[in-house]
């Protein structure tokens, strides 16, 4: 059985949702969600790690800035460098950036408000450990909810991400491109001012992925806007079984 760790820091909020998403993806007993505690430098033998959303340590300083120093993160960084799949969602993405596993940073939303909305994303890269279940160019609907979601990096880094196909998700607006229906387009601006509409990126190996929107809140149309997010959790199970 594939074991996927879900980290809880003080102030983590979406750990129950991430664990539920793992259970849904492994409905036939293929996967187990394993709780990981911030203070333990121990990954409990898991095969992959999810760093979930929330406000770790209150995020009063800068989102993710304190969490990166938690004992468990040292182990995550070590395992990630050896190829363990790691997914950072929202605060988790911020923590992966702070830890140096992914480039760039997340700043306060352009509108300065917390934004919670159902957001369309375009899958730009389906060759990562976390996105193989999607078609390239697929459009998925998942919740976006954060205060600091504006992805930024210097131009060279952005060009490198684009050049290497490491932009995994981009924000698109809920309107078909003129004459191109049903394809949605990028719109004038992203919902939070993210540069080049970037919602999620990967490291050069495709094993480490971070994104601001919440696929774990879109695993069942009953409680989310769709079940489009489930593909990410199914993808990593595929990747681990294949490995």
């Amino acid at each position: 059985m594939t074991r996927i760790g879900v980290i809880t820091f003080p102030g983590t909020l979406d750990d129950v949702d991430a664990a539920r998403a793992v259970r849904h993806a492994g409905r036939d007993g293929a996967a187990e969600a394993v709780p990981l505690w911030h203070a333990d430098a121990d990954l409990r033998g898991v095969d992959a790690v999810i760093v979930p959303g929330g406000f770790s340590y209150g995020d009063y300083l800068r989102a993710g800035a304190i969490a990166r120093f938690a004992p468990v993160m040292g182990e995550v960084v070590r395992a990630a460098r050896q190829g363990m799949p790691v997914l950072g969602i929202c605060n988790g993405f911020q923590i992966l950036c702070e830890s140096g596993l992914l480039p760039g940073a997340l700043l306060r939303n352009a509108g300065l408000h917390f934004v919670c909305r159902d957001q369309w994303l375009r899958v730009e890269n389906n060759e990562t450990a976390w996105t193989s279940r999607y078609e390239r160019g697929a459009e998925i609907l998942v919740p976006l909810k954060n205060m600091e979601g504006r992805y930024v990096a210097d131009a060279a880094t952005l060009d490198e991400l684009e050049g290497e196909g490491r932009v995994v998700f981009r924000y698109v607006v809920d309107e078909p491109e003129p004459g191109q229906a049903p394809k949605r387009h990028l719109g004038a601006d992203s919902p939070n001012g993210a540069l080049r509409h970037i919602a999620g990126i990967t490291d050069p190996t495709g094993r480490i992925v971070g994104l601001m929107p919440h696929p774990e809140h879109a695993i069942d149309a009953l409680t989310g806007p769709s079940d489009d997010g489930l593909g990410m959790f199914l993808s990593v199970l595929d990747a681990l079984v294949a490995a």
Partner: peptide
């Protein structure tokens, strides 16, 4: 107003604004 509130966390929200009632599982 409501786009500034998280309605999804904990994954049990079945109905939220602008529905007539909020509903959680």
């Amino acid at each position: 107003v409501t786009d500034q509130y998280d309605r999804y966390v904990r994954g049990n929200t079945v109905l939220a604004q602008p529905a007539d009632s909020g509903m959680v599982r």
